[in-house]
Amino acid sequence: MHVFDIIGPIMIGPSSSHTAGAARIGRITRMLLGEPVRQAHIRFHGSFAKTWEGHGADRAVIGGLLGLQVDDPDLRRSRHLAAEQGMAYDISSVQLRDAHPNTVIIEATGDSGKTVTVQAASVGGGSVMVQYLNGMEVGFSGSKTTLIIQHKDAPGAIAKVSRLLAASRTNIATMRVFREEAGGRAVMALELDSEPEETHIDALRRVPGFESVTLLRV
């Protein structure tokens, strides 16, 4: 936490957790999908489920799914923008066990038919935590530039990533790895001190067994 977390963030009201956090989760989902969203199922849990209308959490998530930032005044009319841009959505509530009170599950389908499912919590002050990605337990906030790699668990995967980031002279601040089972689906989340060059990101995308490589810049 630092001074711009206290004098800031600059955001659309009324609630840093219910509005700014919700927009951020929508935007992260859009980035993880990697293409414009055609359809989204939005399910609110807990306090989100009780107050989404009055806090504009629905408009915030929809705006985020359209790629809007947390301080974009267009968040207010995001439902209208969704209609204009041909993004269909539905909103419902869900009761989850052992989930943070401000949790939302978003299932998004893109132009190409690709889908992504994100379960994330808005943990306060506009900060968020992605807890499940496509059903797999993860944990990343997107507060720094973050590289998310979905891949097949295999020896040497981490070495390939660190080699390409070193070639790009990008320092890794933190790194976490998650997997379903040995040899199964896996996710790497790397917080970076700077943005790697596009050519190195492309090289990562070509690594066999790497299904999806996303650079989150929330």
């Binding site: 963030p9 600059i10 955001m11 009201g13 009324p14 504009g56 408009r59 005044p73 968040l75 002050g125």
Partner: peptide, 11 residues
């Protein structure tokens, strides 16, 4: 009213 503000320290 969903206007733009600076959280200081919160919204």
């Amino acid at each position: 009213a969903m206007g733009r503000i600076v959280a200081a320290p919160t919204a």
